[in-house]
């Protein structure tokens, strides 16, 4: 399948770059169950042989991501900062504003998380399953809608430049330079961005300065740009598709 986009190990297991070992383990079990020989989920779309190939990809992804050292090595070689440092700095950055503020800013995404988790003690099989859903939601979405990000939004409202707002709204012709100007407009420093995204400084600088030859494979760049856009509360779909178009023109070979 030469044409299709190569998946990162994280995509194979459908987890985010900063997924905890527990989340990865759960995702692995679910993925394995899905393509299992007896599974009702896969047999009608994939042949036995195809399922076997998918299962070996899943095994490979899990073998690497479940081992601290090999995950770190994989992350390092793709410009992702490993999950351990993520956890500790995440905690430290979330205490930079008061509890009241955090309570005020709780989004419905986290209400949703609470809503399902409040019932997770209910004596039905469903309750257990819903908590899996919560976990997925929490890892994939809630972190981006987290108070840490909200903190930046407050800063954002202190400035008002109609021309910039218009550009942000349109998200057209997105380049690394554009992303940097939005970050600066929103008063977010490069270090803060590194702290939120867990992407190495080299890659982030290369991204912002449009030194495209220094960037990793497209599949990773796309992931970075989505996270970058989310952190600045931009429309990440618009931003990533526009940026990838830009990247493809600049670096057609990859």
């Amino acid at each position: 399948m030469s044409n299709t986009r190569k998946q990162s190990l994280y995509e194979i297991l459908d987890v985010s770059f900063n997924a905890s070992p527990d989340t990865i383990r759960h995702a692995y079990i679910k993925a394995k169950n899905a393509y299992n020989r007896d599974s009702l989920a896969a047999y009608s779309l994939y042949s036995a042989e195809e399922s076997k190939d998918i299962l070996s990809e899943i095994e490979e992804a899990y073998t690497i991501l479940s081992d601290v050292d090999s995950r770190k090595k994989y992350d390092d070689s793709h410009g992702i900062i490993s999950s351990d440092s993520y956890n500790s700095s995440y905690r430290s950055s979330s205490v930079t504003f008061s509890k009241n503020e955090a309570r005020e800013e709780i989004t419905s995404a986290s209400t949703e998380y609470q809503s399902s988790s409040t019932t997770s003690n209910a004596p039905t099989a469903t309750a257990g399953n819903m908590s899996h859903i919560d976990r997925i939601l929490q890892t994939q979405e809630s972190k981006s809608a987290n108070p840490v990000m909200k903190n930046y939004l407050k800063i954002e409202s202190q400035k008002n430049d109609p021309e910039m707002e218009e550009r942000i709204n349109k998200c057209e012709n997105v380049s690394g330079g554009f992303l940097r100007s939005v970050r600066e407009y929103k008063n977010v420093t490069l270090d803060q961005m590194i702290d939120i995204l867990k992407i190495s400084k080299n890659y982030l600088t290369a991204l912002e300065e449009d030194q495209v030859e220094k960037l990793p494979a497209n599949v990773f760049v796309r992931g970075f740009v989505i996270q970058y856009a989310r952190a600045l509360k931009l429309n990440h779909e618009k931003v990533s598709s526009s940026y990838m178009e830009f990247l493809k023109n600049k670096r057609p070979s990859l």
Partner: peptide
Amino acid sequence: GTDAEIGFGVKNVCKKY
């Protein structure tokens, strides 16, 4: 429980397929 798990399998397969 296996019946309930099918939902996750379908989700997984849909994403891929």
